[in-house]
């Protein structure tokens, strides 16, 4: 990179990497890269697991079945040790969240320039667009829309389970009568509990987003500023990030189970 205007080039390089490919205007903007990658990875998950489910044998399992069963058993154990109610939904939900988020996080390990460059080439040769105008953000979990979609889904289930198990009255009572059980502090309780209630999905999604966004940003920074030195540095950061990727997927799954078990327990 040239010294003159290097700052500008780096920042535009980073900017380019952090911009989604969009379709539409205003609120009705779709991040097609986020949507495409997340849906492709979601199908990778359900179809690969479905292939096991279709011919699941109770005898000696094949290698792929054994692997899938390890994952399923791990999720099942986690759910059983935390969620004590009876639910057909919690365990598959946890499995979907864990594997899907894990797959999306793993996109972070693909070299940062690889897929965007590929997309640029397709844009250039296929559609005659300047490669610089083709945007491609490959890690769906670095998009707040993705993480909020997950946490809002969990939030809706939290409300649903609260009302289903405790009734509307029980759910509301939990909101206004909880820390201080005196009528003249109900307004204060309500304020507190509503904040606490909304903080759950907010923290859930922002934690995942923040971790992956920061990780991705550091990959881009290394790629944009280090020259040849980026090779070992990338390796070190990738090795470290390898811990964060499953950890964040696990935390998201674990907190989902915890929140849902809190929602479905009587106090």
């Amino acid at each position: 990179m040239a010294d003159t205007g290097g700052e500008q080039t780096i920042s535009s390089y980073i900017q380019h990497h952090l911009t989604n490919a969009t379709v539409g205007e205003g609120f009705w903007t779709f991040h097609i890269d986020t949507l495409a990658w997340s849906i492709v990875l979601g199908f990778v998950f359900i179809l690969s697991f479905r292939s096991v489910a279709k011919k699941a044998t109770t005898g000696v399992p094949g290698k792929w079945q054994a692997f899938v069963e390890i994952v399923v058993d791990f999720v099942n154990d986690t759910v059983k040790s935390t969620y004590h109610g009876k639910s057909e939904l919690i365990a598959p939900l946890a499995l979907t969240i864990f594997v899907w988020v894990l797959l999306m996080n793993l996109m972070d390990l693909i070299p940062v320039d690889f897929l965007p460059w590929f997309a640029g080439q397709i844009g250039y040769y296929g559609f005659g667009v300047d490669p610089h105008d083709v945007y491609m953000k490959v890690v769906p979990t670095t998009d707040v829309n993705m993480t909020f979609a997950l946490s809002i889904g969990v939030f809706i289930l939290m409300i649903f389970y609260s009302i289903k198990i405790k009734g509307v009255g029980g759910f509301l009572k939990e909101l206004y009568a909880h820390p201080f059980n005196t009528p003249w502090l109900y307004w204060f309780n309500f304020l507190l509990e509503v904040v606490a209630l909304f903080a759950k999905p907010l923290s859930l999604s922002l934690r995942l987003f923040g971790n992956l966004y920061a990780g991705e940003l550091i990959f881009i920074l290394i790629a944009g500023t280090m020259g040849l030195w980026q090779l070992p540095i990338h390796f070190i950061w990738a090795a470290f990030h390898l811990l964060i990727i499953p950890l964040q997927a696990f935390i998201f799954m674990m907190l989902t189970i915890v929140y849902l078990s809190l929602a479905s327990e009587e106090h």
Binding site: F30, H31, I39, R50, P92, L93, N145, M146
Partner: peptide, 24 residues
């Protein structure tokens, strides 16, 4: 935040439903 969220929410619900019905 934009309409991507709605798309992802629908995808999420679909994947969870599919997993609950045919995978788990």
């Amino acid at each position: 935040i934009n309409a991507t969220l709605l798309g992802e929410l629908i995808a999420f619900i679909f994947f969870v439903w599919f997993c609950m019905k045919f995978v788990w």
